[in-house]
């Protein structure tokens, strides 16, 4: 299991919107776990199906008995994009940056979006193994990022 990481520097500059749980609390468990440097994925307590993002009902068996399951944080790049044109003022000097879509084999192949640490100009191929990096921000939120494993 990847060690808990405090990245010295965030991948993207400060100033982007900070993630907050929805008012109904649907994904509170995910963001709280990230704050503790744990990666969790919603899983059905009745049929063990993973789903992400979370929902109030299991798409497989329609159970509403759902919980959070801690996963390894190891995955592989399912797709990627290198962004050259900033659409947010905070990103004006941050391009290019790399956004990856990471598939998690030990969580039913659910996918998560994050940034890839390191030089955004480095070549990246689909299938590259990656592992989670927890990136702490002030005030009080943690982003789920990825580095080459």
């Amino acid at each position: 299991m990847p060690t808990e990481q405090h990245s010295a520097k965030s991948v993207l500059p400060e100033g982007l919107p900070a993630p907050q749980s929805t008012r109904d609390g649907l994904d509170q468990g995910f963001w709280d776990a990230a704050r503790r440097h744990e990666l969790v994925v919603q899983r059905c307590n009745d049929c063990a199906t993973f789903q992400f993002g979370p929902e109030w009902i299991c798409h497989n068996c329609r159970s509403t008995n759902l919980g959070w399951h801690r996963v390894s944080g190891r995955g592989r790049v399912y797709s990627w994009e290198r962004v050259w044109h900033p659409v947010h003022p905070a990103l004006r000097d941050a391009c290019p940056y790399m956004v990856v879509l990471v598939e998690l084999p030990d969580a039913g192949n659910v996918r998560m979006v994050g940034n890839l640490t390191g030089d955004a100009r480095d070549e990246l191929t689909i299938g590259t193994p990656v592992e989670v990096v927890f990136e702490d921000h002030q005030p009080g939120f943690t982003l789920v990022q990825w580095r080459r494993a």
């Binding site: 982007l16 929805t22 962004v83 990103l91 956004v99 979006v113 940034n115 990022q145």
Partner: peptide, 24 residues
Amino acid sequence: KTISGDFAYTLPYGLMSPAQMFAM
């Protein structure tokens, strides 16, 4: 300043415009 819901999983990572949504 903040974002919640589906966009909370993408916007903080600089994935925000339609072009960025569909390039993936």
